[in-house]
Amino acid sequence: MSRSGRLDDAARDPIPFRPFSPGTQPPYDAPAYLSTRARHPARPLVTAPHTVTETTGPCFTPSRFPALADISATDGRAAQGERIIVNGRVLDEDGRPVPHTMLEIWQANAAGRYAHLVDQHNAPLDPHFRGVGRVFSDEQGNWRIVTIKPGAYPWRNHANAWRPNHIHFSLFGQGFAQRLVTQMYFPGDPLLPLDPIFNSIPDAAARDRLISSFDLETTQPEYALGYRFDIVLRGRGATPFEDGEHR
């Protein structure tokens, strides 16, 4: 489909996105995360073969959706906390960069409080930290934000429950079925083994890929620590075997 044109024959049999690998995505029903109890579907999902509806998606541009890559200060005033640089690449499952795609991020401040009315955690708000950013990947899929390391905060899921430090990410990719909303965690966080949201992902390797790595190359002297977080979106077509054949 051309951007301004009509749906043509090429739209009739678009290349579908690949099914997710078993165990790499959380279930809808995860009893340890109490909010899933009344919100998970009880009936099986209906398989929807991918059509133009699923294989195409919105095209966000910085002209309509301005980027905000440095959220560590507001109106020139530095936010409280530990300044960090988070960067990474957006790739697909075949290792191809996903260029010019929008990433939305949001997070709590250094004290573990969101600039959100519903968040009544008894920790200070920071007038210089709103906690919302937006960036676009470049031609090679690279992106970078400057922010403040978010604090842990309590929640009422179970006794003495605390969420590990995390940054929320939202991506759209190149088609409706590539939509991804996830959370990035920090290495060595003692709360990770206790967190029902993180541990809802059955596959340990898939879980661990939500943990960013400390990145000395990105770290800037006298300025900020660097962290790396690569994001992989669904690939298109059949699953490649290791010998390169497709099934």
Binding site: F20, S21, T24, Q25, P26, Y33, S35, E93, D94, G95, W106, A108, Y114, H116, V118, D119, H168, S170, L180, V181, T182, Q183, I197, F198, I201, D203, A206, R207, R209, L210, I231, V232, L233, R234, G235, P240
Partner: peptide, 14 residues
Amino acid sequence: MPTATASQTIGPYW
């Protein structure tokens, strides 16, 4: 190649 990044909830503060 790694598989697609795992999803997590959008949470109450989106």
